[in-house]
Write a protein that binds this DNA or RNA. Structure first.
Length: 154
DNA sequence: GCCAACGTTGGC
DNA sequence: GCCAACGTTGGC
């Protein structure tokens, strides 16, 4: 039995950019492009290798949970912040003092799509952060109870 | 395409 | 440090 605490996360990705099928094909994905301090801090300060990730499709016809992934690296500087031709370029960041971090995530499995309306209808998820009004964070913590309620139905 | 909600920026 | 203006997210 592991003594390492495992955290659960929900991470949003646009399926046009990187959906669960991309991850299934490649096995692994660098989670670059996060440009929000709260989301960065979650990756930098709280994520650990082995943490469980609910892979969520956003900005698409059917938003919802589409699969499971696992954190496979600790946080390291996101290289796209230094690439002047990248849309994620940040002129205020430097290699000496990088502003943005990423983690790597590996494929665990594809699930049926648990859509947003279904999630909203589950009483166990009433307090889930991603479902709160006005939420825009691309990375949010998921409680163990929320994880259990969701995984039971996937 | 609309728009609510939120984060960031920059003038003062 | 305040806050208006602006940009972005993301569901619909």
């Amino acid at each position: 039995m592991s003594t390492r605490p495992v955290h659960y996360w929900l991470m949003k990705s646009e399926p046009d950019e990187a959906g669960i099928d991309h991850l299934a094909r490649d096995g692994k994905l660098g989670w670059f492009g996060v440009r929000n301090y709260q989301a960065r801090n979650f990756m930098r300060d709280q994520m650990q290798v082995g943490d469980v990730v609910l892979f969520y499709h956003s900005s698409c016809p059917e938003p919802g949970i589409a699969g499971i992934a696992e954190v496979s690296s600790s946080a390291y500087p996101d290289p796209t912040q230094f690439e002047s031709e990248s849309k994620y370029f940040d002129p205020k960041s430097s290699r000496e003092n990088p502003r943005w971090m990423q983690v790597d995530v590996k494929f665990v499995k594809k699930t049926r799509l648990m859509g947003l309306p279904e999630m909203r209808a589950m009483p166990e998820l009433a307090d889930m952060q991603v479902l709160q009004r006005g939420n825009r964070l691309s990375i949010t913590p998921v409680s163990r109870a929320e994880w259990e309620a969701i995984s039971k139905k996937l």
